[in-house]
Design a protein around this nucleic acid. Structure first.
Lengths: 179, 179
DNA sequence: GTCTATAGGATGATAGAC
DNA sequence: GTCTATCATCCTATAGAC
């Protein structure tokens, strides 16, 4: 149900997707939706929240399996995981990325907390890698992060998302930031 | 009129903006719009087309004023010009970037030609800079370009666009790709 | 060129039966 | 929990007066 919504938000944007379309894709009618959610904003709010949560959890899980001092592998793993989430099957994360700025402001504010948590994770990751000499010293992490995440998030606009292409992209990103 | 449309498309996405809203912002009524355009798709098609044209012209104009062998200045100038277009006053380019993938497919196809022309300009620019040793040799221009443009285009999602911030962003991007 | 008026349909949301 | 039926409102687009 959320994933039916996410799939369409991702493909068409927030306003273009009607409750009828979501309901139909989920095998329900409009009326039934209002038993689970109290409005369209409520649905999209949940999509945003879950979307963030999924990437955050996945990246954390990836990092848990990599030695804390292998900064190259940690960076590469985090980037790869983020991008895999974007192109994943019924991607709440991708919908999140795509429609975040189209959504009514109250909804956006509600999704800010998890977003900050995710960014904090990345800041720590990049700073540690830089201290260890993995990332070039002349780069500024607070600017680098949004630029890098932007480059990654934008791939949904031009990449077809097949495994080889994604691997190439990750490699190029690593070359860009590495010492 | 186009700029009134662009401003709203940029802020709210394609589907969320009604003809009434565009007309009101342009000081007209819905009926009058149909004297100038034959449909909403027609309007957005024109916004996309003009948006591309503006960035293309601006970047070309910038490059015309920089020596052909000063690759660092040419790169920096092109990046700065692109990003200035994005944050410009009534930004058709920014609307273009923002709604390109939300627009009906026929409209998108129609806007593809100018888009390719713009990308070709950048490919040439980056390849020349790389041949001259300005861009690190281990980077692959065909992958680097969409990543870089993605990073830049995404700035509209997080930067406020004031002059100092933009300058910082351009500098960081240059550090990323330079030798 | 711009207006008013309106057609014809889609949209978010609610009420109430089962 | 899911349905049908419906409301009020909005939408794109058109017709015709000025």
């Amino acid at each position: 149900m959320l994933s039916a919504a996410a799939k369409q938000f991702r493909a068409n944007g927030y306003a273009a997707v009607s409750l009828r379309a979501i309901a139909k894709a989920a095998g329900l009618t409009t009326g039934s939706m209002y038993y689970h959610f109290k409005s369209k904003e409520d649905i999209v709010g949940e999509v945003l929240f879950q979307g963030h949560l999924i990437v955050l959890d996945q990246v954390k899980a990836t990092l848990d399996n990599i030695a804390t001092d292998d900064h190259e592998a940690r960076l590469r793993g985090a980037i790869k995981t983020h991008i895999l989430c974007l192109f994943g099957e019924d991607s709440l994360p991708a919908a999140n990325i795509r429609i975040f700025s189209q959504v009514p402001q109250e909804v956006r504010s509600g999704a800010m907390a998890t977003r900050r948590a995710y960014e904090a994770l990345w800041i720590g990751l990049l700073e540690q890698a830089q201290r260890a000499g993995q990332i070039r010293a002349n780069l500024s992490v607070p600017i680098l992060l949004p630029l890098m995440l932007g480059a990654i998030n934008w791939t949904t606009e031009w990449s077809n998302g097949d495994e080889d292409s994604l691997e190439t992209i990750v490699t190029e990103l690593m070359l860009l930031i590495q010492r």
